[in-house]
Design a protein around this nucleic acid. Sequence first.
DNA 1: TCTACACCCTGTAGCAACTACAGGGTCAAG
DNA 2: CTTGACCCTGTAGTTGCTACAGGGTGTAGA
Lengths: 134, 134
Amino acid sequence: MKIGELASATATKVETVRYYEKIGLLPPPARTSANYRAYGHDHLARLSFIRRARDLGFTLEAVRELLTLSDDKAQSCDAVDGIARVHLTEIDRKVADLTALRGELDRVIGSCRHGTVADCKIIETLAPRTVPAK
Amino acid sequence: MKIGELASATATKVETVRYYEKIGLLPPPARTSANYRAYGHDHLARLSFIRRARDLGFTLEAVRELLTLSDDKAQSCDAVDGIARVHLTEIDRKVADLTALRGELDRVIGSCRHGTVADCKIIETLAPRTVPAK
DNA sequence: TCTACACCCTGTAGCAACTACAGGGTCAAG
DNA sequence: CTTGACCCTGTAGTTGCTACAGGGTGTAGA
């Protein structure tokens, strides 16, 4: 698979694919006789993971960490467990926020359909987590 | 509320708060006699929304659009509906991805606890959405 | 054959969204 | 009355892309 095909299969820019290779997130693929990058299924799966994790608000460093769960077969159970637990907590927070946001958008669409004035309370759905010390 | 208090209540850097003001995401607050920014509850709620939406992977432009649902009371029902629907679809996609990721992290933690080798399939949980044309 | 067009290559420079100073002012505590 | 923790306005750096510039490759049609 050439870089353009890989890019379009994952909704990524060609330049971004090369960027991920440069910073070591995507392993350098084999080259054709014309020096073109030749990708396989593993690259496709890995790039897809990176892109979708980024879309979920994970930083490249967090993505790198998640990928080590797959890559480093030799690491200790404690390390794996620690990394997984941290991200699990983060994910639960994100799902809760998205669900609240979804509910409010649903409500806005609904009140709109019924012709009533949509008094959008979207800001309140993601209100401060910790009450500030007044 | 001074800028430092607002920042720590929302886990934001002071510089970032000023940056959001500069780009028009956060309205300029009143000033004290010493020219310090003085924020109220509305600023706190709005900044909290911005930060949490950013954490969910929304761009500043998407956040700006979501905020107009609250701000622009005069806009047409069609416009509100359109904006809300687009983001609703996006949110459903994100929740599905996070749920899959969560499941795999759970599985890794579980297999770790039972002393078995954790064969992490995390990459597969966010596999390519559309099968490429081979 | 040859040329036109879509693709690939390696740079380097720009943009988005922060983040970190530099250089200076404010203010409550001791 | 000064010391330290805050605030101010810049400007420059970082991360994560994104967009050229300048050049090579490959194949389809005249």
